[in-house]
């Protein structure tokens, strides 16, 4: 879609090719997402069920497990059940599991292979990385850059976990979207089929996000 700037584009392309080669002589690392990232709405490949991520909560109540920010470490979760000071805005709603990214997804679920937060051009895997989806324009008019720290609280269980904005979604619909790993980190139950594969994105858990753009 880019409106190419003639010679500047050629210079840029040349530098891009050169820089790509510097990083990965074998050409194995992509800086940009696929140009036509498909919105997928079809069946999950056979044999991919039974997801088990490393962030699963042990169900013991109290604090949730920490989400994984692959770019920078997140603070340790409070041990007294409190919400850390310093947040700017909050967003509350019913949890919805979002399957965008490179992880697994339920049959028939509309989703995208890419996430806004990327590491070296690679989208996140929601099965292994806990992140939340920011509702654009829903935070009292604030929109935060991806990577912004978020403290996630499951109001039903009291579990809390540090996380970050890994993707963006539509304006407030009363839903707080999060990756499967993040859902597990705060004790949100994910509907599964008998073979362990994801069934759908529904949940009844009441969730609050606390946004920390200044930390």
């Amino acid at each position: 879609m880019k409106n190419i700037g003639g010679p500047l584009f050629l210079i840029g392309t040349a530098i891009f090719v050169a820089s790509s080669g510097m990083i990965s002589p074998g050409g194995g690392r992509n800086r940009n997402p696929p140009p036509d990232d498909p919105i997928i709405n079809d069946a999950m490949p056979n044999g991919n069920g039974g997801n088990n991520n490393g962030n699963s909560n042990n169900g013991s109540g109290g604090n949730g497990t920490n989400s994984t920010n692959p770019d920078s470490s997140l603070p340790p979760n409070p041990t007294d059940g409190s919400v850390p000071d310093g947040y700017q805005t909050t967003q509350s709603g019913v949890a919805r599991v979002d399957f965008d990214g490179t992880g697994q997804y339920p049959t028939g679920d509309t989703h995208s292979l890419s996430t806004s937060y990327q590491i070296n051009g690679q989208s996140l895997n929601g099965d292994t990385t806990g992140f939340v989806v920011q509702n654009m324009n829903a935070n009292g008019g604030y929109t935060y850059p991806v990577g912004t720290k978020v403290y996630v609280v499951n109001n039903d269980t009291g579990q809390g976990s540090w996380s970050f904005i890994g993707d963006n979604g539509p304006t407030n619909s009363g839903r707080n979207e999060m990756s499967p790993a993040q859902a597990a980190a705060v004790g949100v139950t994910i509907d599964r089929n008998s073979d362990g594969s994801y069934k759908n994105s529904n949940s009844d858990s009441n969730i609050t996000y606390y946004y920390y753009p200044n930390s």
Binding site: N32, D71, S112, S116, P145, N168, G169, P170
Partner: peptide, 30 residues
């Protein structure tokens, strides 16, 4: 660490009286 680039042309809607302009940037989902 991020890619929130627009996926279609950015729309500028100029108020007919010339008082305001509203700008629409379409990203992947919003």
């Amino acid at each position: 660490n991020s890619n929130t680039a627009p996926i279609s042309p950015i729309l500028c809607d100029w108020n007919p009286t010339g008082r305001w302009v509203v700008i629409f940037v379409q990203t992947t989902r919003a």
